[in-house]
Design a binder for these strands. Structure first.
Lengths: 130, 130
DNA sequence: TATCAGTTTAGAACGATTCTAATGTATTGA
DNA sequence: TCAATACATTAGAATCGTTCTAAACTGATA
């Protein structure tokens, strides 16, 4: 618990009760993909009475500090990824589930970007069938 | 115009006035990326008095018939692509603009999909910086 | 040309997210 | 230690893209 408080302070975030609970869950060593909704459900099960507004605020705050990555997979909701390293994903629409691809992949045959633009990052999303 | 009517009929779509106008614009030979909003703006400029509801309906109908591809780029809106071939994109968040990548690209080093799942398609999105 | 299934429409409803402004709490410095 | 204050949390309202509803309209057909 003290670790998490330090961790939050190191990232210029006040270790409030709510942030400590959420950070403890998110940064427990197991990479996770959460939405505001799935996180809210998890917290309800843990009987942490944290309002939806705080969940949104906290995800946003953690994102701002670079502790989470935002994933734009579909237009229905925003996914946050605790794995902030550059990596790719499998996505099963049916299961509404993302799986990290942590191995190095190479994209070859990429054309030049348009004039005056540079490539920021390449994102590969592998859609699964079933 | 008669072409478009045939085209719609061939795709089991009644060639109503609104659909003809929208199809004429979308399928004029130049590939396009539209959202309900950008299409609506374009139609307003053309003084075609087509309601937003019809724009949504029509995009959806065309999509159902395989005339458009849906692109999930961000959580703000749904993009439709008149290029229904398998291809990839450059994306400039700043310009809110998509550019087709029509050359063949290869992704190497892809791990096996999880058990009992197969790969449906691989989508590469190249984020541009400026 | 009457019929009717399919289409369009305005506006209501919806759902994820953000905002508001009132209340609560961690931090600080005396 | 405590008061002051800057920052956080919260319920509920607002927002915004999209979908739904149900009434009016229109293309196809016989």
């Amino acid at each position: 618990m003290i670790d998490i408080k330090h961790f939050l302070r190191q990232n210029s975030l006040r270790p409030t009760k709510q942030r400590v609970i959420i950070a403890n869950y998110l940064f427990d060593g197991v990479n996770k993909h959460v939405t505001a909704e799935t996180l809210s459900n998890k917290l309800l099960k843990m009987k942490a009475g944290i309002s939806l507004a705080t969940i949104y605020n906290t995800l946003h705050d953690f994102y701002e500090k670079g502790l989470l990555k935002k994933l734009m997979i579909n237009s229905e909701r925003i996914y946050f990824d605790t794995n902030t390293e550059h990596h790719h994903h499998f996505y099963s629409k049916k299961d509404q589930k993302l799986i990290d691809i942590n191995v190095d992949m190479k994209v070859s045959g990429l054309p030049k970007p348009p004039k005056n633009k540079k490539i920021k990052k390449i994102e590969v999303l592998v859609h699964l069938d079933n």
